[in-house]
Design a binder for these strands. Structure first.
Lengths: 361, 361
DNA sequence: GATATACTCTACATCGTTGTAGAAGTACGT
DNA sequence: ACGTACTTCTACAACGATGTAGAGTATATC
């Protein structure tokens, strides 16, 4: 029933292979032949059977993006950027959600479902440094995020420590001394929480401000709800606070909510800064300052790396950190009304390791 | 290099087809044989070549979801729900963004890229009723949204008119009389904007309140930014306003921003209600009342319909409208603090048409 | 004018799986 | 003992494209 190359070939009076050549833009096809084939294709409404081509070429032209949840704005925006970047190079993106569940994240690496695509962009949230070995996979993989360092795969990550330091430093510059943190993870050594907290501590040290554990609020999941709860706890604890560094924007939104509930003036009484620079923060009241980790560049870089690996490059594994910026808005008093001001730029870097990738099987 | 069924068969001492049978859970395989095959699979690390299976079975197990942009919270959450619903049934989801560009939306229907998947869930935003003919496609298609009615494809849509009527009625119940609309599209007859505006007008009529064009604010794109602009214009126009119905939540967020800027008390001076019930509205200050159109059910229903069409069902085309609810929060004074109250429920419906689907080619 | 080179096209095998048809073995009722 | 039905397995031919090798012309080079 479906039209095959065979049918097109017949109508055009050429061999199947010639049709294939026309379809794939092979240059050595006589103009008149090309036209006849194209006429036949149009007339018969031929469309390539991609499964057959995939089988023959061992390529699918698709990559998988594994994220925790698209309903988290950061990942939705990341997915948006990844799809755009992939599309520009002619790749399609299959999206899978792990729900930040350990089991599902392990399944990603086990590769049971990988077969549909040529490679995987993976943003883990449940796995940690202890799971490093699981990242030795035999398919093209690029890791995103801060859960795991040193895996045998290209890695696109953020300038966490520096950016968090700069964000905190910015609060200090505006005269704040009692800076609370929302979203710490006790005992974590690696991971966004630990790294950003480290940046915070470094900024305090730089300014000679003593570190006060009472100002550090824990939050398991980095959602709006937990941000609000944590902020509430900090405020109700009676600790004096004149600024808040929420370790991501979702929590910053929640924190803002908690601050508003208590009729606290922002930035008058308490300044607030987040991390991720998601769209939301430009429309809150007041608008929220944040750290822009370079989402578009992260996406583009990750896609480029993955496509190169799929292409079979054997270059050493790289870790890439895009430029990041601290964007000042109303919540830190940098602007009044809409608009924003870049108050710091952290240059990115490319680290070439001497580790070779595992041969893709 | 890669392990084939052939290799597994050899090691297990059976035919390739038996390996296939084991892998696919065919029941008539002796227990001892099954174990031998499984041992061979594990030992060799065999993984099915899905391209080959796709070629043979003419199925890919994937569907495409076409949305305007994932960075719009509604579509991100919709995608989340679709992926979950599909996953439950063992399907994977490829996501493509059209950017709400007419050309790209037409390409979706032209099916140039459809070949990768077994069917398409399509949420158009640029196409309109005039493009109805383009929806006569020869592949399984389910349409989402309100841009087009009467296409020859299953359609999952919202209870727009009724829900908008109920939302407006709710504002009226709380004593409001000067209810502004944010997001109208002049001249539109079909489409979310027109339908929701119709519901608004109907509620006014029901309550005997005259319709005042000065209260209707136009907004092209339904983004936060346009919501803020439109709200600003309405406020600055000097028209007396005691409530606002934003035709979607993104604009409600923008409107909230504009209201705050002008130090207007919500819901004291002006009440606000949105539409979509995205996660954001539970974390703003005040929390925003909204219309929950049944996102999960929309996603689930759409996936079910599409899977049925892919399965070759020839049942008449259906239009399905899930239940919708008006959710009252702080911005309409229904609750204080967090929490919410369902203030109205609009039952959904299933419309069986007598139109047959086009034979899938 | 002979040889080399490039262009244009074809025939055929092949990618790795599943559907079909049927062979061999087992179980059971009569 | 025999037919019938079921179970278990196999051989072989697809599915629809592309890679390879090479045939036949046309064009360039010496």
């Amino acid at each position: 029933m479906p039209v095959r190359m065979q049918d097109v070939a017949q109508r055009a009076g050429v061999s199947v292979k010639t049709v294939s050549n026309v379809v794939n833009g092979y240059p050595h096809v006589r103009e008149s032949t090309r036209r006849r084939v194209e006429e036949a294709i149009d007339h018969l409404g031929y469309r390539m059977n991609v499964s057959a081509r995939n089988l023959r070429t061992r390529r699918t032209g698709m990559i998988t993006l594994n994220v925790p949840e698209l309903s988290l704005p950061y990942f939705a925006e990341l997915a948006d950027s990844v799809i755009r970047a992939a599309d520009e190079q002619g790749w399609s993106v299959l999206i899978e959600q792990t729900g930040a569940e350990r089991q599902r994240e392990l399944e990603v690496l086990a590769g049971r479902r990988r077969h549909l695509t040529d490679g995987v962009l993976f943003s883990p949230l449940a796995l940690g440094q202890d799971d490093l070995d699981h990242f030795d996979v035999d398919f093209p993989l690029v890791v995103l995020g801060e859960r795991v360092f040193g895996a045998r795969a290209d890695h696109v990550t953020m300038n966490n420590v520096e950016a968090a330091r700069a964000a905190t430093a910015h609060l200090i510059t505006t005269g704040r001394r009692r800076i609370a943190v929302v979203g710490a993870h006790a005992g974590e050594v690696i991971g966004s929480a630990a790294l950003r907290l480290a940046g915070y501590e470094r900024a305090l040290a730089d300014a000679g401000i003593p570190f006060d554990p009472a100002l550090v609020g824990e939050a398991g999941l980095w959602h709006r709800a937990t941000g609000a709860e944590t902020m509430g706890r900090l405020l109700d604890s009676g600790t004096g606070i004149d600024a808040v560094f929420a370790l991501n924007d979702a929590m910053a939104l929640g924190a803002l909510h908690a601050l508003h509930e208590r009729r606290i003036d922002i930035p008058g009484d308490i300044a607030l800064i987040g991390f991720d620079d998601v769209d939301d923060v430009r429309y809150t009241v007041p608008t929220i300052s944040s750290v822009d980790p370079g989402r578009d560049e992260i996406a583009r870089t990750a896609v480029d790396l993955l496509v190169a690996r799929i292409g079979g490059t054997t270059e050493p594994i790289r870790r890439i950190v895009p430029d990041a910026r601290v964007v000042g808005r109303e919540s830190t008093g940098d602007v009044r009304g809409d608009g924003e001001r870049v108050v710091a730029v952290m240059p990115g870097r490319v680290e070439d390791t001497d580790v070779s990738p595992l041969p893709a099987g």
